[in-house]
Design a protein around this nucleic acid. Structure first.
Length: 608
RNA sequence: CGGGGCAUGGCGCAGUCUGGUAGCGCAUCUGCUUUGGGAGCAGAGGGUCGGGAGUUCGAAUCUCCCUGCCCCGACCA
């Protein structure tokens, strides 16, 4: 008996058998809880709220708090209450099934990792304050893992010796910690979160590509099964050339990321990676002559265009960024109505990495002017001009003197020594880089990212196997992440109405909510509801039984807030006519059907 | 990191300017009534007013320090 807490299997099942003879609903619920198939709301201690907590900004965060799925412990740290955890587990289960189906092997790595591994990979220095560093009692350095490339590569170099063991894909579902500058939106951008991360190892690049494609397919199945509208988009490949990377975005207006896609084919990319094609039409011939004009106070394109009564697209913005050398700057020119794309700019020769705008002092030194009046004429630094900017004739730009601009400026005639480059964000309507159709913009929530890492970590950490000829070859790696906690929030962001959550059925904490109305008064309602609860539960259906002594309005409102897909109502009114009432969460009308057909009726509707 | 704001019962807030010993709604508990869309009445419990120091006869309120949280910004020319 003294070990009863350590006997989860034998202990509980015997207890359950004993308890099942009891009539106590508490004990019933307890005996069922380890199967998590059913739950009585009268035994569920968490409450929903009518009022929206002040801290929540976006819909998913508000609804998750109101429905009692999560509670905030501290900035960026959340507890998952039972109802929320059920959904989280649903998401995990789907991910596990599809990862396993794709041949990946689950393992589990520590959250806390020794600093040595991170020093070895170089990321101890590269990673900024986002990396939470810890010391143990011996003053040894550790990190709270924001990701697990180092640990998995360490495992790989110890366990993998032969090409015959490849390819292999290890994955885990594990808590990560990233000390975000600004956690927000609840679990959408939390500091601690759950991620499924997978890492594949290959003998050569061709095998890596194949493994990558396999993961692409698995991710597509995962998000499809979750009932989400999503898109895989090309992502920025970063400073490591040749590597391939794609992000999976759940489409939602509140998404933090801009994604673009062609309206005519499969092309899709995030804003950083979307290429802007050079305009087809050649630049018109110069018609105006160069002139200096006074433009007092016109420090912005908007003000300048307004003052001169011209389109912003006739003005060119000159942006100064820090160069690689000491005190060097680089000038970047984009059309007045376009935005600079920092990711693209950072890749240009001569531009400092990480990318930084030049400060006022450097600008003064390089141009003799201040922000708002900078132009390319007479600059003694590298000049990059965006393709679209190069297509403008007779443009307006800063004169490198306060309150002065130049008009009638023309490339080659007035400005030389520039290099053409793609350095702007695409805009809606730009031609697709795929050559087909025009680009459209949308907002997305990044829930997955797949990446062909190549040999970045395996080289530094010496993960190698022997090939057929006995030669040592450095392994190729891929890595593949899914933000599990974020997926749950994203699902709500995409599926809700003014009354609450509209769970896609595969993620719903329960499939069916059984609402008993007036059971305190009516023995018939009470008995019928109990029988239905037992019948549906026995048939393996996940049922949330609202057996509370509450008014109908309260029960309906909670059922809708919680977003349970199927609602069954047992009430005196219907029973008198031998009928039950059914409504799907997405329907606006209820339908009635004979009492005895409940199971068949529901089975027909489940999973539709 | 810079700027702004907030901190009063579980949640949402008022009270702070003008100092006098804490209040409203929701939630919770009890009783009665009510029961198809977040009930009504009557009663009850619950707050070191974020923490510390100070000013004062007296501080939620004024002053200073600290802490926590929220929002905005960090691609602007």
């Amino acid at each position: 008996m003294r070990t009863c807490r350590g006997l989860p299997v034998g202990g509980t099942s015997r207890a359950a058998a004993h308890l099942s003879s009891s009539r106590s609903p508490v004990m019933m619920a307890a005996s069922l809880s380890h199967k998590t198939r059913a739950m009585r709301l009268s035994q569920y201690p968490i409450q929903t709220t009518k009022e929206t907590p002040a801290e929540a900004e976006i819909v998913s965060h508000q609804l998750m708090l109101r429905a009692g799925l999560i509670r905030r412990l501290s900035s960026g740290l959340y507890s998952w209450l039972p109802m929320g955890l059920r959904t989280l587990r649903k998401a995990e289960a789907i991910i596990r099934e599809e990862m396993n189906r794709a041949g990946a092997l689950e393992l589990l790595m520590p959250v806390v990792q020794p600093a040595e591994l991170w020093q070895e990979s170089g990321r101890w220095k590269e990673y900024g304050p986002e990396l939470l560093r810890l010391k143990d009692r011996h003053q040894r350095d550790f990190v709270a893992g924001p990701t697990h490339e180092e640990v998995i590569t360490d495992i790989a170099r110890r366990e993998l010796k032969s090409y015959r063991q490849l390819p292999v894909n290890f994955y885990q579902v594990q808590t990560k910690f990233r000390d975000e500058i600004r956690p927000r939106f609840g679990v959408m951008r939390a500091r601690e979160f759950i991620m499924k991360d997978a890492y594949s190892f290959h003998a050569d690049a061709a095998s890596l590509e194949q493994g990558y494609r396999l993961m692409h397919e698995a991710y597509t199945r995962i998000f499809t099964r979750m009932g989400l509208q999503f898109r895989a988009v090309k992502a920025d490949s970063g400073p490591i050339g040749g590597d391939v990377s794609q992000e999976f975005h759940v489409l939602a207006a509140s998404g933090e990321d801009a994604i673009v896609f062609s309206d005519a084919d499969e092309y899709a990319a995030n804003m950083e990676a979307a290429a802007a094609l050079p305009p087809r039409e050649p630049r018109p011939a110069p018609r105006e002559s160069l002139a200096r004009i006074a433009t007092p106070g016109a420090k912005t394109i908007e003000a300048l265009a307004g003052l001169l009564k011209i389109e912003p697209s006739r003005c060119l913005k000159t942006l100064l960024v820090e160069g690689e050398g000491e005190n060097e700057v680089v000038a970047l020119l984009v059309r007045g109505d376009h935005e600079l794309n920092a990711t693209k700019a950072q890749r240009l020769p001569g531009v400092a990495s990480p990318f930084r705008m030049a400060d006022a002092e450097r600008i003064q030194r390089a141009t003799g002017a201040q922000v708002g009046y900078i132009g390319p004429l007479g600059l003694k630094c590298r000049i990059y001009a965006d393709h679209a900017a190069l297509a403008v004739a007779d443009f307006v730009c800063g004169a490198n003197e306060k309150d002065m601009h130049l008009t009638g400026v023309n490339w080659d005639r007035d400005v030389q020594g520039y290099v053409a480059a793609d350095i702007r964000n695409v805009v809606e309507g730009d031609p697709s880089p795929s050559g087909k159709g025009a680009l459209k913009l949308a907002r997305g929530i990044e829930v997955g990212h797949i990446f062909q890492l190549g040999r970045k970590y395996s080289e530094k950490m010496h993960a190698a196997v022997l090939d057929e000829s006995g030669q040592e070859v450095t392994v190729h790696m891929g890595c593949y992440g899914i933000g599990v906690t974020r997926v749950v929030a994203a699902a709500i962001e995409q599926n809700h109405d003014e009354r609450g959550i509209l769970w896609p059925e595969p993620l719903a904490p329960f499939k069916v909510v059984l609402v008993a109305l007036g059971q305190q008064k009516s023995a018939e309602v009470r008995e019928r509801a109990e029988r239905l609860y037992a019948e549906l539960t026995g048939a393996g259906i996940e049922v949330l039984f609202d057996d509370r002594d509450a008014r109908p309005g309260v029960k309906f409102a909670d059922a809708e807030l919680l977003g349970i897909p199927h609602r069954l109502v047992v009430a005196e009114r219907g029973l008198a006519a031998g009928r039950l009432e059914y409504r799907h969460r997405r329907d606006s009308e209820s339908v009635e059907f004979p009492v005895d057909e409940a199971l068949a009726f529901l089975k027909d509707r489940l999973g539709r």
